[in-house]
């Protein structure tokens, strides 16, 4: 509770520190506009036109429904890999044999291109929610799993010994010695897992479903509707940036204050 309050208290200062980021985004939009002037509206619509399309889309009920569908799939998929990846990763980390054996499996999971998973999932589950959710899980699970595994494997033996010498009860061992260390590995893994899930959900929808923002992107492509396609990209990037910079980064800063 105290912790949450501290995050809120430091939030304005954090936002204020974001002017540099805003400047760099504006610079990027300036280059985008230059690209529009060189290549024309069909290839690269201007930022202004894109944002106009975006605001029209966001006031449209049906587009909101598509976004909700995508959010649902992404959160189910990511939520499952978060729970599974974290718990299995911790479990594997506590046993030397399990962590040794899981390494090659993780390599297979990471090495397999997501597009191949989509094809397999389409064969196994058909065209629908399951295919998308499965692909999201398969793509983001190994990232979370490896984070949890590494966190547990790198626990400091000297600190464990210290805890033993002071006869820490089990709850202190867990909350004061193990948890902060493991969390400092698991949390960044969650963040990158989330980024991965968000990218994969769009790709899987584009290929395997008839609804969701991915499918809308496919429709925009077939109708050569570049402004809509770009507006969808803006939705994707914007939401990811919001989650990462407005929600996760302040938490991460507070959690990792003790780090060098």
């Amino acid at each position: 509770m105290k912790f949450a309050l501290k995050i809120l208290k430091d939030f304005p200062a954090y936002l204020w520190s974001g002017w540099g980021a805003v400047a760099s985004i504006l610079l990027f939009i300036a280059f985008w506009d230059a690209g529009n002037q060189v290549y024309g509206d069909l290839v690269l619509p201007s930022p202004l036109e894109t944002f106009k399309t975006l605001s029209v889309m966001l006031s449209d009920e049906s587009v909101i429904t598509e976004i909700k569908t995508t959010l649902y799939r992404a959160s189910i998929g990511f939520g499952l890999s978060l729970v599974l990846g974290t718990s299995l990763g911790l479990l594997a980390g506590f046993f030397a044999t399990a962590s040794m054996m899981s390494r090659p499996i993780v390599t297979i999971l990471v090495g397999m291109p997501p597009i191949a998973w989509i094809v397999l999932a389409m064969i196994w589950f058909g065209m629908g929610d399951e295919t998308v959710i499965f692909t999201v899980i398969v793509a983001s699970f190994p990232i979370v799993f490896v984070g949890a595994l590494q966190g547990t494997r790198t626990l400091d033996g000297e600190l464990k010994e210290m805890a033993k010498s002071f006869k820490f009860p089990w709850h202190m061992k867990f909350f004061d010695v193990y948890f902060p260390h493991i969390f400092s590995y698991v949390f960044p893994a969650w963040v990158s897992g989330l980024g991965m899930a968000w990218k994969i959900v769009i790709m899987a929808e584009l290929l395997a479903t008839s609804n969701g923002i991915g499918a809308s992107l496919a429709v925009a492509r077939s109708q050569l509707d570049t402004p809509t396609a770009l507006a969808i990209v803006v939705i994707m990037i914007g939401s990811l940036m919001f989650i990462e910079y407005i929600i996760l980064e302040p938490i991460k800063r507070e959690v990792e204050l003790w780090r060098d």
Binding site: E158, L159, M162, S165, P180, S184, W258
Partner: peptide, 14 residues
């Protein structure tokens, strides 16, 4: 009894 180690062995997050 208590133990003082050669290195300080402090919890870095405390």
């Amino acid at each position: 009894s208590s133990f003082a180690f050669q290195e300080a062995r402090l919890l870095p997050w405390k």
